[in-house]
Write a protein that binds this DNA or RNA. Structure first.
Lengths: 235, 235
DNA sequence: GTAAGATTCTACTCAACAGTAACTTATGGT
DNA sequence: ACCATAAGTTACTGTTGAGTAGAATCTTAC
C-alpha cells in the first residue's frame, strides 16, 4: 500500500526474483496485493484462483497465506489501496481555496486518474457480497464517505453559485458513475494517458452536451491548476 | 423476454404455484430468467447457485435445466433481456426527427429507465469472463453496437451544432458510465421512480455543473416529449 | 558454524456446486 | 380408458478450489 519502494511499479514478481530472500516484508506483501488486483481485473474475482495469483508471482499458494489471511482479505486490501487516493483528493479539496466548482474540478481530475489505475477494477466492479459482513461494511463506509464528500463540494458550489444542478444527490451519482465507468474501458498504454482522460472528463462534466452560449465567457480562472500529483519514483 | 403475459410482473414463482402443470412454456422460461436476474443482482453470479434460483421458484435444479442449457446461458439470457430495450431506443432514435441533441435526450431517458430495471445488474455488473468465448463475444458486440449508436447521435448533434463536446468518444463513455452506474444504487420502490431519475440525468448530462449563462435561453423546444413507454399490463 | 527464526514448499482435506442419469407423475389427444 | 409425451423429481458424479499441516530451506545474529 505504501507506494514508496522502487521496483514495485513494473513487475511485482521482481520482488522475489533475483533478490535475496529475507527481503522487506512490506514490499512483498504489496506485490501480492498488486498482482491480485491485476488478476482480478483480467479474469474477475471468482475466476481467479489463489494458485493463479501465486503462479503470476512465481511462488506457491501457501506463500500467499503467509502474507494475507485469506482470499477475502486480499480483495479487501485491493479495495483499500484503490480507494485511498480518492479519499486523499477529497481531504485536500476540503481545505483548498477557490470556489466549489474549482475544488470539485480538482477532485474529478484526481478521481479519474485513480480509477484508471490498476486498482480501478477492485473499486468499481468487485462485489460487496464477496466480502463478509464485517469487511463489506467497512468498504461501504469508505465509499459512502467519498459520496458525501462529493455532495458536500457540490453544495459549496451551489452556495457560491459556481455550480447549478437541480439535485446534488443525483448529480453526485452521475459524476461518480461517469468516472467509475472508466475502469471498464480504460487500459493503460493505449492512445490516451490517464491525464488526458481526466481532463476530458473534467471538461464534459462541467459543461455537458449543450453548446455554451456565445459571449459571457465562463470564469475558468484557475483552469486546472496542474498540480501533477507527485509521481512515485519509477524504476 | 416477451413481456406480454400477465402475472409475470410481480412474483415469478406464480408461474408455477396454483396453476396446472401443462402451462405455457415461454412464460415459465421467462420466469426462470427473471428470477435468475434478481438473484444475481442480490448475491452476484458466483454466489448464486442454481439450487438457490430453483428454490426461489419453488422447483428443483433439474427443472431449470429443462428451460435453459446451463448457467452460462442463463446469464446470457439476462444480458439479452436487459440490453434489448436500449437497442430499441437507439433504433427509434435513428429514424426520429429533431436535432441530434433532441434525439439523444430521448435515448438517455430510455436508457436510464432500462438500467433501473431488474436486468440492470446483468447489463452492467456481470463479467464477460463468466460467459464463454462464444457468448461473451456476442454480448460485447451488442454493447459495442450501443456505444456506436450513442457516438453517432453525438456526431449528428455536433454537425447540426445542437451539441458541443470536444471528444465524442469520451463523451459517449461518460454518458454511458453515468447511466450504467444507476444499476449500482437504484432500488425500485424507494423515493424516486425510474422516470424521475431519468429526467434528472437528462438534465444533468445536458448542462453539466456550470450555471447556464443568463439570457440566451437554450432551445428546449421539444422538452422531453413524454412518450411514456408502453407499460406492460400489470396484473 | 550454528541456533533461532523467518520464509516457502509438498501434499494433503474438505465442501460446494454444476451438471446428469434414470425414474415418476400429470395431461391432453384419440 | 390409454398411451405418448411434457414436466419434474431424487439421488447421484466429478471437479474445482479454498484453506492447512508439517516438513524443508534459507538468513541473520552470535
Amino acid at each position: 500500500m505504501a507506494d514508496s519502494t522502487p521496483a514495485n511499479t513494473a513487475d511485482p514478481a521482481a520482488a522475489w526474483r533475483g533478490r535475496r530472500r529475507r527481503q522487506d516484508h512490506g514490499t512483498k506483501r504489496d506485490a501480492v496485493i498488486r498482482t491480485a488486483a491485476k488478476a482480478f481485473d483480467e479474469r474477475g474475482y471468482h475466476n481467479t484462483s489463489l494458485d493463479d495469483i501465486a503462479a503470476a508471482l512465481g511462488v506457491t499458494k501457501p506463500t500467499i497465506y503467509y502474507y494475507v489471511a485469506n482470499k477475502e482479505q486480499l480483495l479487501f486490501e485491493c479495495f483499500l489501496a484503490g480507494l485511498e487516493p480518492i479519499r486523499a483528493a477529497l481531504r485536500r479539496a476540503e481545505q483548498a481555496p477557490g470556489s466549489g466548482r474549482d475544488r470539485l474540478r480538482e477532485v474529478i481530475h484526481d478521481y479519474a486518474v485513480a480509477i484508471a489505475s490498476e486498482y480501478g477494477w477492485c473499486m468499481v466492479r468487485a462485489e460487496h457480497q464477496d466480502l463478509g459482513a464485517e469487511l463489506g461494511a467497512q468498504v461501504r463506509a469508505l465509499k459512502s464517505e467519498i459520496d458525501r464528500g462529493i455532495r458536500r463540494l457540490l453544495q459549496h458550489g451551489i452556495n457560491d453559485s459556481s455550480i447549478a444542478v437541480t439535485d446534488p444527490k443525483l448529480a453526485a451519482f452521475a459524476i461518480a458513475g461517469a468516472l467509475n465507468w472508466i475502469a471498464h474501458w480504460y487500459r493503460a498504454g493505449r492512445t490516451l494517458t490517464q491525464d488526458e482522460v481526466a481532463d476530458a472528463f473534467v471538461q464534459f462534466l462541467e459543461h455537458g452536451l449543450a453548446p455554451r452560449q456565445p459571449g459571457a465567457g465562463n470564469p475558468v480562472r484557475a483552469s486546472v491548476r496542474v498540480r501533477r500529483t507527485r509521481v512515485v519514483a519509477k524504476a
